[in-house]
Design a protein around this nucleic acid. Sequence first.
DNA 1: TATTTTTTTAATCATTTGATTAAAATGTTT
DNA 2: AAACATTTTAATCAAATGATTAAAAAAATA
Lengths: 210, 210
Amino acid sequence: MSKTKIKAKEASTEERIKEAARKLFTQKGFAATRTRDIADEAGINLALLNYYFRSKQKLFDIIMIENFRGLMGLMTGHFRDEQLTMEDKIAKMVGTYIDFISKNPDLPLFVLSELQGNPSAIAARINQEFMPARTQLFKELQESNREGKTALEPFHFVANLIGLTIFPFIARPILQRTTQTTDEQFAAFMQERRTLVPMWIRMMMKPPGK
Amino acid sequence: MSKTKIKAKEASTEERIKEAARKLFTQKGFAATRTRDIADEAGINLALLNYYFRSKQKLFDIIMIENFRGLMGLMTGHFRDEQLTMEDKIAKMVGTYIDFISKNPDLPLFVLSELQGNPSAIAARINQEFMPARTQLFKELQESNREGKTALEPFHFVANLIGLTIFPFIARPILQRTTQTTDEQFAAFMQERRTLVPMWIRMMMKPPGK
DNA sequence: TATTTTTTTAATCATTTGATTAAAATGTTT
DNA sequence: AAACATTTTAATCAAATGATTAAAAAAATA
C-alpha cells in the first residue's frame, strides 16, 4: 500500500467521515450516535467508515482527542508567551475561549461528558501534553502569591477562570430560559463577559485589604 | 385494579427500579444505559421494568424530572424566604448546593447533558414550576440595581453564582488532574468555596467606585 | 379454601446496530 | 491495454437491545 500516491483521495473521504463524526459525536455523544448516521451525514457507505477507521470506538477516540486538544490548546497557548503579563494572558484566554466556543457551542459539554467516568488512556495521555504550560502557569501564580501580589490558589483560579468563561455555554439552555434571554441577547452577554470576566478575576486575585 | 390496597408492595419494587434507574441514568446517560442493567441493578426481571414503567423513555422522564427538581429546588427554595437578606440567600444557596452535589456528584452534568438539544416538554414544563421564585429573585435584583446598591445583570448574576458553585463538580476530572489535587484536597477546596463564592459574588455585585 | 387479582418470570420477538465479506468500480502502473 | 492495487458498494451477520407474551407464583378477596 503506497500511502503517498493515494493521499489526495484518501484524505478527502477520510476527512468527510471525520467531519461527519465530529458533528454527530459532539452533538449527541458516543452512545447516542449511530455509525449509520455518520455514514449518511458523510454521504458514504457504512462499510467505508470501518474500512478507514476500523471501528466506531477508534473513530471516536480520534475525534475526542482532537476536540480536547482544540479546547485545551486555547488555554495553554497563551501561557507560553513570556512577553505577556498575567493580566494580558487572562484577557486573551477569555476572549479566545468565548470566540472559539461561540463557533463550537457543543464542544465543552461533550468533552466534559465523555471524560466523566472515563479513566481512559486518552485523558491521561492528553494531560501530559499540557504539563509544561500548566506547570509554568502554576509557578507564576504561586510565585505571585508568595510575593503577596495576589492571593488565590491555583485550583480556585483555574476553576473560576474556566467556569466563568465556559459554564454559560454549558448551561445555556437552562440559563436562557431562566433569564428569558433571546439568542441575540445571549451572544451580547457573552461579549460583555469578555471584559467582565477578566475584571472579576482580577478582583478575586487581589489580596484582602490591598 | 385497586391501587390503594397494593400500595405498599408496589412502592417497594417500583422504588427499587427507580433507584437503580436513577443511579445508572445519572451515571451514564440515557443512551448508554441498558434496561437490562437497570433490571440487574434492581435485582428484578427485565419484564417487570416495562410492567411498571411501560418503556425506557417513560422511566427516564420520571427520573429526569425528579433529578432536575432536586437541583433547581435548592436554588428556588431559599429565594422564597422573605426574612433573609440577599447576602444570606446567596450564602445559603451556595452552601446547600455544595452539600447536595457533594453527595450526588454526577447529577449536574447529567441534567445539563440530557437537556442539551432536548427542547422536550420536560424542560418547558419544569421551568414553569420555578417561574415564581425566579421572577421574585429578578425583581429584587433589578430593584437593587435601580437603586444603585448593586450593579450586576440578572443573567451574569445567575451564571456566576451557579457557575462558580457547580462548575468545579462538572469539570472535576479535568480540574483535579490540572491542579494535581487529591480527592481530599478537592473536598477541602469545595469547602473553602462555601465562603469564597459568596464573597466573590458580593464583590461582583458592588457598583464600581463604591 | 376457592376464586380472583396482582406481581413476577422465562421465553421469545422484532429492530437496531456495529461490523464483515465478497464483489464491483475506480484508479494506477507497466 | 493488461495486470495490479485501491476504493466503494450491496448484502449479510451476529450480537445487543427494547419490548411483549403467555404462563407461573404470590397475594388478596370472597
